[in-house]
Design a protein around this nucleic acid. Sequence first.
DNA 1: CACGCGTGGCT
DNA 2: TAGCCAAGCGT
Length: 354
Amino acid sequence: MTASASPQISRLLIDWYDANARSLPWRNPPGAPLPRDPDWPYRVWLSEVMLQQTTVAAVIPYFAAFTERWPSIADLAAAREDEVMAAWAGLGYYSRARNLVKCAREVAALGGFPRTEAELRKLPGIGAYSAASIAAIAFGERAVVVDANVERVVARLFAITEPLPGARKAIRKAAEAITPTQRAGDFAQAMMDLGAQTCTARRPRCLLCPLSDHCEGRASGDPEKLPVKPPRKARPERRGTAFWIEREGAVWLVTRPGTGMLGGMRALPDDGWTARAEGSGQAPVEGEATRLGAVRHGFTHAQLTLELVRIDGDARPEGEGEGEGEWWPLDRLDEAGLPTVYAKAARLALAARG
DNA sequence: CACGCGTGGCT
DNA sequence: TAGCCAAGCGT
């Protein structure tokens, strides 16, 4: 990288963005002034949290549903946490939903979002990346935004061959050098669009890239090798059992503990399986057991085979009367907010039922 | 710093 | 097709 290359790179990228920006529900058109809409920072923040480790396609319907139901930060701050958790069901990384409510309440109490990176960083669920991106996109502050897209684009552009995570320092420094003072938000989104659509992980489309003439990674011959990542740990196989306990048109659902896997989410009762250990196979209620089948589900850190067993009888499930579960009407099961693994199991149970 | 934490799309 | 990967955060 030469000192004079930086402004040229930012200009090339901004020009490309002006012509090629994706139109997204939370996005301001390229080059447009910041919206006067008082809910603009709320929408940027909501989209950024939803987009953490999550694809644009997955986020779009959730963003629409959330902004329809809770149009402002005040609305979300006033919402019941369990309703927000249920609305988040299926999107994954559920601690985000819990932190979303906490953050909304803190921001409402503050009277609005802070506009600096440092102040944003203090809010729950807002880390280094989100603080920078919200400051830049929502408020037009100059901030250096580094996510996985930027890491990839920068590592290739400057042929940074040191493996992650060690390379992060050099990557940040290079990102800092090409981040413009003006339109830092558009620049960040341009980098992310480029990373998502052109400078992709597996198959970079260098012929479409506005930076290809300046790309040392391309010049090196195999840009797809960058950035160098450490090998991932193998995912252990786990088995567990979930139980379908149905009475009079309702099914017994529990709410999982607030922390840990699927924390705070409604679920079918299970045998205590975790990502670290097999389940006991033990049902939370007496009765006749019938195996309904099994569902496979991959988590980040474990691959699960979840057996589904129906329990028939009259006994009271563990926790009934103690607020540890609830009989949920089957005709409203899609409103229960079951995370995907349990939604799959429920689908299996309903199919088995005919 | 390394790990736990979901899900669905792409190759 | 079975990994690999994604607009990360909290601890």
